[in-house]
Amino acid sequence: MSAAPGQMTPKLVTALESIDRWRQESDTEADREHAEISEEQERLQREIEERQATLESLATRKTEVEANKASLPGEQLSRRREAALKNLAGDRGLVAARGSLFGDQVKARERRVQELIEKPEYNKLVKEYEEFQDVEMGLDSLPKTYKQAILAHHSNVKKELGPVFEAMAADIEPVDAQGIGVAVVGSIDAPASGSPEALAVIIPTPFETCSKWSERAEDLASLIAYRVISCVGKMLAEVGAADAPLQYAEYENALAIQVWLGDSEVKGNLQRVLDDLIDEANGKAAEFEAGRLRLEMVWVEPEVVAPDEDADGGEG
């Protein structure tokens, strides 16, 4: 009879070994979890640091955006001023170039008249007409009958020269170029809730149309200036400020009309009235039609056109 295998290792040993394994396994598990938690903590810490850095960066950016936003009105004013000056110079160039083409058309009309007066049927009459200009002043010293005879003859000569007068008064032929629009810049200075105190109107024509008018030809630039001034005069009459004093000044090589309204009682909307009058002038001016040119009022804040503090301005 064989003996059944017995329990050779004491149960305590087995139990202690089991406890050791448990301990070992538990240590391992605790170490693993500890490591995981540490890793997660570090990750979160890094994330917090990154978020913090992002927050700080956002705060900095927010301050920058706020500062930028605060500077926008100034920047807008600066850009509007730059645009106004740049386009004023551009429009002055356009007017000068268009004036040259218009001048060519005026000369073409003169050539047609010249050709006409060189024709034999007019040539002698023109000479007589010219000579009359010299003798006219002395007519009063002649006997009445002589004077009457000369005047009657002169009247006949003038009548026969009718086609020459008509040719000289003929419409200027339109320029061979595309239509252009140029801006007349207007600005009204008024207290927050009150009547306008001053008006500035800047025309893209040289100031010399004012300061040297007697030395220069009456060209397209001069005619544009007359039209705008006429509109300003009419507008002032319509808003009850007919006697408002006007001054003419040089502004960035252009012509500026300055109107003092502080002593007038302005009734109505002068901006709208001037807009309408300029618009109306576009369709009622022979030189605009021939020059294929239109004016348009563009209104800006006074600060946009305020002269630089160190700039000099002449007055007409």
């Binding site: 007359y226 009622k284 022979a286």
Partner: peptide, 20 residues
């Protein structure tokens, strides 16, 4: 000054189509 003429004519009805 021509500008005085332009202003006065403007106030008195406006400039004509042809400035002649």
């Amino acid at each position: 000054h021509p500008f005085e003429v332009a202003r006065l004519m403007g106030q008195a009805g406006g400039l004509p189509f042809t400035l002649a």
